[in-house]
């Protein structure tokens, strides 16, 4: 190392300039100086070695940090890929489940002469509008949901999805704290499609609204009505509980 050589040279010069010509015997004789230089040189060697080793260690530490970082990055890449895939899977699953469930829900014809909902050319636009409205509801956009469900009813008075649209509209009003409209909508729904799977729930919701509005008498009547009409429904079980309280 050049730096070490320069230093050694300096030390040596210093020794010769100050030590030898002055010849102050006893203070710094030749042997002692040599010994001193050797000692310093050895120390310096050790010091350079230490620094060098430290630097090399730093390089390898940097390398392992990089590798560690890369591994983490790889994990992030993989996890976000898997999350993305899982989201898509969930969505597909939901859509699939929804479609299957709909088959089991009673399809109530609006009027005898109305053509069947399925297979109608307009069915896709209808389904799309319905889905959009529901998405508003699920996304918490209640005003948009109620508006979309209202207009759905006007646009597709014969739709097989109309009962569901009305039911959700009632729920949307309920969530918007519009009890009057909620009661009205759910009552109409339950009266018009008494066989609909959601009718008991609609009545339960009506009772809840009436209770909230302080109309305990009517609330009780609605619950009794619910229990007698749909004795085996889960809503009836809830109704019995509420009445027992």
């Amino acid at each position: 190392m050049p730096s070490r050589r320069v230093l050694l040279l300096t030390l040596f010069l210093a020794a010769s300039v100050f030590g030898v010509p002055e010849a102050r015997a006893g203070l710094f004789d030749d042997d002692e100086a040599r010994e001193q230089v050797q000692k310093l040189s050895k120390q310096l060697d050790e010091w350079v070695d230490t620094v060098t080793k430290a630097q090399i260690d730093l390089i390898s530490q940097l390398q392992s940090l990089r590798e560690e970082n890369a591994k983490l990055r790889g994990q992030v890449e993989l996890l976000s890929f898997e999350l993305e895939a899982e989201k898509k899977r969930q969505q597909d699953f939901y859509v699939d489940l929804d479609a299957r469930l709909r088959k089991f829900e009673p399809q109530v014809p609006d009027s005898p002469d109305a053509p069947a909902g399925e297979g109608k050319p307009a069915a896709t636009a209808e389904a799309h509008d319905y889905e959009t409205a529901l998405k508003f509801f699920q996304g918490g956009k209640l005003k948009e949901a109620s508006r979309a469900l209202e207009s759905f009813g006007k646009r597709y008075p014969n739709s097989s999805l109309l009962p569901d649209a009305r039911y959700w509209l009632g729920n949307a009003y309920y969530s918007l704290n519009n009890c009057k409209k909620s009661i009205e909508t759910h009552k109409q729904f339950a009266a018009k499609w008494p066989q609909h799977a959601k009718s008991p729930d609609a009545l339960l919701s009506v009772a809840a609204c009436q209770q909230e509005a302080g109309d305990a008498k009517n609330a009780k009547a609605t619950l009794e009505d619910l229990v007698s009409q749909y004795p085996s429904s889960t809503a009836a079980a809830t109704a019995r509980q509420r009445m027992g309280q």
Binding site: M1, P2, T52, K53, I56, I59, S60, Q63, S64
Partner: peptide
């Protein structure tokens, strides 16, 4: 691995000194 192992550091250092 892409790390100069400890056992080769003396060798590399010798070449470094020579090149310097």
């Amino acid at each position: 691995s892409f790390e100069v192992k400890r056992e080769y550091q003396e060798l590399v250092s010798a070449h470094a000194r020579f090149l310097v």
